[in-house]
Write a protein that binds this DNA or RNA. Structure first.
Length: 554
RNA sequence: GCGCCUGUAGCUCAGUUGGAUAGAGCAACGGACUUCUAAUCCGUAGGUCAGGGGUUCGAAUCCCUUCAGGCGCGCCA
């Protein structure tokens, strides 16, 4: 929480107590009003107390104001307003504390201990190793990565994990796909079957494999070499996925193999565990999980009549394993097309004895890839699709990430390649980066001119020279940064950061245009350099969380 | 048929647990560089928050309903 906010909050809380019969810890909302006449901050606590105090909100507001104590004199004025709001006008000098907060330790600014060190896992991407990542995976990757950064910054002990679906029929299909392409590329006349992975990447992979094996698998019966083909395909594709994610700036602490789960009998154990708890039963030749016990619309099969376990059974085992590894909260980031699985997974978690909130599922809406307004075909089966790597190569990592992160996760996204590129000069990401480069340039020029600047030696008198309304606005906005991170943590939505950055940078550009930072008055110059340094640091700090570069020059 | 998501300016999208007069970018139009980066700034115009009903001091936000679009509803993964 920002320094000013936390001070206001405790002041209000203290002023309310005498009005109550018994002490209470109220949730004090502090809004920043849209109109300046309504002050720097406003609260609506009075509305919440009407029933308790049996008075009208306007009256209560006045009573609270009468009780306010302001020993540090951070308030210039307080007044009741409208139907019962309380408007606070802050003494501009109180904002100097924000500068200290930022410049004392720029990288730490905004970091806070909401998470209390709790262990939390963020699982994301988790694309099947049957083909390269596409743009939808990229959106999930950006969101998961940044969310993990934010949670880490807010006091959680975060682990990033990628779940590899390297078991089941699809692996055989993958191996066969490579096998057939291998034979075709070796010159064998052989039909490529339907329902296999027919993308061009599989042909490339086949040629590569022919090279590595000297073509010695040509004409060898499928059964004899399927395992070899399967593992070669899966490993190569997974390596490609890792490389693409690396280029995209996404790094996992753990890669969790589904096959491992089967190898150590974890699926069976998890089902036994659930059976002991009474949530597994046999019927119609199959084994069922009683997810209706926790609100799912129907029970789910975990072992089919033919003896094979379902994907969901593995997922139960996987989540059981997550909690057994000691995570107190688990965040799953899924494509929105999996929303039908949320209820049963939540049911599973509860059957294991966890609270429903211990699992939070974030559904990332699908991405529509366009080029010049025209949809780009994205058929996996037909193999006609644009990979994430191609998008990054064409649009750039920073712009791609920024576009993904500037949307709410549950809102569908039109990603137009032409717009993302052609707009580059007006692209929000460059707008933000430009401000950073501009600020770097100011400090460079300052150094050239021999302007000495060490903010630690800048005193209150000097900071008091910051007297323009825009300067106060900048300071106040800088003070809101921790609040932005807290909101992201509460909602598990990263998009507040790009919007905040845009607002901050816009205010700065405007200020910069009208005022000179390096002026004739040495004291004023020092004061403004403090402000400039703080803006620069917060931009860099936020861009770092987004995994977007903060360039020195542009 | 049932369920979930979405519907806000011409376009792309914000609007944090209900708050005071609904915001930004792009596009359009008109302006601003002898200066620390014009990849910038300033101004104008643009709205029945899909439609209708309800809840209350107060609704884009909550409830009901209609319409439109997307996705999902397997002993598939």
């Amino acid at each position: 929480m920002s320094v000013i906010r936390s001070r206001l909050r405790s002041m209000i809380l203290e002023a309310v107590q005498p009005l109550l019969d018994s002490p209470a810890d109220l949730n004090i909302e502090l809004d920043i009003p849209k109109v300046a006449e309504h002050g720097d901050f406003a609260t609506n606590v009075a509305f919440g107390l009407t029933k308790r105090l049996r008075r009208n909100p306007r009256e209560i507001a006045s009573l609270i104001i009468a009780n306010l104590k302001d020993p540090d004199r951070i308030l210039k004025k307080v007044e009741p307003a409208g139907p019962g709001f309380i408007n606070f006008f802050i003494d501009p000098r109180a904002y100097h504390e924000i500068l200290r907060d930022i410049l004392d330790n720029p990288r730490q600014y905004g970091r806070q201990n909401i998470g209390l060190g709790r262990r939390i896992q963020v699982e994301f991407v988790s694309a099947n190793p049957t083909g390269p990542l596409h743009i939808g995976h990229g959106r999930g990757a950006a969101i998961g990565d940044v969310l993990a950064n934010i949670l880490q910054g807010c006091g959680y002990d975060v682990q990033r994990e990628y779940y590899i679906n390297d078991a089941g029929n699809q692996m055989d299909t993958l191996g066969r796909s490579l096998y057939y392409r291998y034979q075709q590329e070796s010159g064998e006349e052989i039909d490529f079957p339907d329902n296999h992975y027919r993308g061009d990447y599989m042909i490339d992979l086949a040629r590569q494999f022919i090279g590595e094996t000297g073509g010695r698998h040509r004409g060898v019966p499928l059964e004899e070499v399927l395992q070899v083909f399967t593992s070669y395909a899966a490993n190569s594709i997974l390596d490609g996925i890792k490389e693409d994610l690396d280029v995209f700036g996404v790094h996992f602490q753990n890669w969790f193999s589904e096959q491992e789960l089967h190898n150590r009998d974890a699926v069976k154990q998890a089902l036994e565990f659930l059976r002991e708890r009474g949530y597994i039963y046999d019927a119609e030749g199959a084994v069922w999980f009683k997810s209706t016990a926790f609100g799912d619309e129907k029970d789910r099969v975990v072992i089919r009549a033919n003896g094979a376990s379902t994907y969901f059974a593995a997922d139960l085992a996987y989540h059981w394993d997550k909690f057994r590894r000691g995570f107190e909260m688990v965040v799953d980031i899924w494509g929105a097309d999996h929303h039908g699985y949320v209820d049963r997974m939540k049911a599973g978690v509860q059957a294991m004895g966890q609270a429903p909130e211990d699992l939070r599922v974030i559904l990332v809406q699908l991405v529509n890839l366009l080029r010049g307004g025209q949809p780009v075909a994205m058929s996996t089966r037909g193999g006609e699709f644009v990979t994430l790597r191609e998008v990054i190569d064409e649009v750039g990592k920073d712009a791609t990430r920024f576009i993904f992160l500037t949307r709410r996760t549950d809102s569908p996204l039109d990603f137009d390649l032409e717009v993302a590129k052609a707009q580059s000069n007006d692209n929000p990401v460059f707008y933000v980066q430009y401000a950073h480069a501009r600020l770097c340039s100011v400090f460079e020029v300052a150094a050239e001119r021999g302007v000495e600047f060490d903010w630690k030696s800048v005193g209150e008198d000097t900071l008091n020279l910051l007297s323009l309304p825009r300067e106060y606005e900048l300071l106040k906005l800088l003070g809101e940064y921790p609040e932005v991170l807290a909101t992201c943590t509460r909602t598990l939505e990263p998009h507040y950061i790009p919007y905040y950055l845009h607002e901050l940078v816009s205010l700065f550009h405007s200020y910069y245009h009208d005022n000179r930072i390096l002026g004739d008055d040495p004291a004023l110059t020092r004061a403004r350099l403090c402000l400039a340094a703080a803006v620069k640091e917060v931009i860099a700090n936020a861009l770092d969380l987004l995994g977007v570069a903060a360039p020195q020059k542009m």
